[in-house]
Computed example of a mutant assay.
Amino acid sequence: MHEIWEAVSAIASVLTALAVIFAIMQLVTARKQRHREFELVYVQRYWSIVDRLSFDIGVEIPVAGLNETDAKLCLQYLRLCEDELDLRKRRFVTDETWEIWKQGIRFQVARKPFAELMKSDVVKTLDLLPPFHIDPAKSDPLALSNFLKRWYGLL
């Protein structure tokens, strides 16, 4: 009889461990889904800015050639980049999304009119974008181990 209780106890322990593992996996999955929904808001902000520009964002135009609306939209884009860096730093952007955003920010900010704006007084209001733009070693404002990234649903 004692052996039966030991077997039942062992099975119950295994089932409890499996339930805990399943609960943790559900928590991490829910966090990742929340991140994805949040990231979508910023993708929508990006397209809202790009769609309102009177020029194709793939075409380089000097700042002097911008109309007033485009100049404001270009500044909004730089602020969006700053916000994206801040979100990454605060653990709201997944690694997969960050790789895309990082490349896009680096590419676009290195081109006119954004590169010219980065040399202007506008950068005084930005904390994260100027060092990110200048130093390729500062490629990720988030400094977490892969274990913690996984825990927060970022991997």
Score class of each variant (00 low, 15 high):
Ile57Gln: 12
Ser54His: 09
Glu37Val: 10
Pro62Ala: 05
Glu39Met: 09
Trp47Ile: 06
Gln44Met: 10
Phe55Tyr: 05
His35Thr: 04
Ile21Lys: 01
Leu40Lys: 04
Glu60Phe: 01
Val41Lys: 06
Ile21Glu: 05
Leu40His: 10
Arg52Gly: 13
Arg34Cys: 07
Gln44Lys: 08
Glu60Arg: 00
Tyr46Cys: 05
Val59His: 14
Arg34Tyr: 08
Trp47Asp: 13
Ile61His: 00
Ile57Lys: 08
Glu60Asn: 00
Phe22Val: 15
Asp56Arg: 07
Leu40Trp: 03
Asp56Gln: 06
Ile49Glu: 03
Phe22Cys: 15
Gln33Ile: 10
Phe38Leu: 11
Ile49Gln: 02
Val28Trp: 00
His35Lys: 07
Gln44Asn: 10
Glu60Trp: 00
Gly58Gln: 14
Glu39Ala: 13
Gln33Asp: 09
Val59Tyr: 13
Val43Asn: 12
Gln33Ala: 11
Ser54Cys: 08
Arg36Met: 13
Arg52Lys: 15
Val20His: 00
Ala23Phe: 09
Leu40Ala: 08
Lys32Pro: 03
Glu39Trp: 04
Glu60His: 01
Ile61Phe: 03
Trp47Met: 11
Asp56Pro: 07
Leu40Asp: 08
Gln26Ser: 10
Ile61Asn: 03
Met25His: 04
Ile21Ala: 05
Glu39Asp: 14
Ile57Met: 15
Glu37Cys: 12
Ile57Arg: 11
Gln26Thr: 05
Ile57Pro: 11
Pro62Cys: 05
Val43Phe: 12
Leu53Trp: 02
Ala30Arg: 05
Leu27Pro: 03
Phe22Asp: 14
Ile21His: 02
Val43Ala: 13
Ala23Gln: 12
Phe22Gln: 15
Val59Lys: 11
Tyr42His: 11
Tyr42Gln: 05
Arg34Lys: 11
Ile57Asp: 06
Arg36Val: 09
His35Arg: 08
Ile24Trp: 04
Phe22Leu: 15
Gly58Asn: 14
Leu53Cys: 03
Ile21Val: 05
Ile24Lys: 02
Lys32Trp: 06
Arg45Asn: 15
Ala23Val: 11
Arg52Val: 09
Gln33Cys: 07
Trp47Gln: 13
Tyr46Val: 01
Pro62His: 07
Asp51Tyr: 05
Ser48Thr: 08
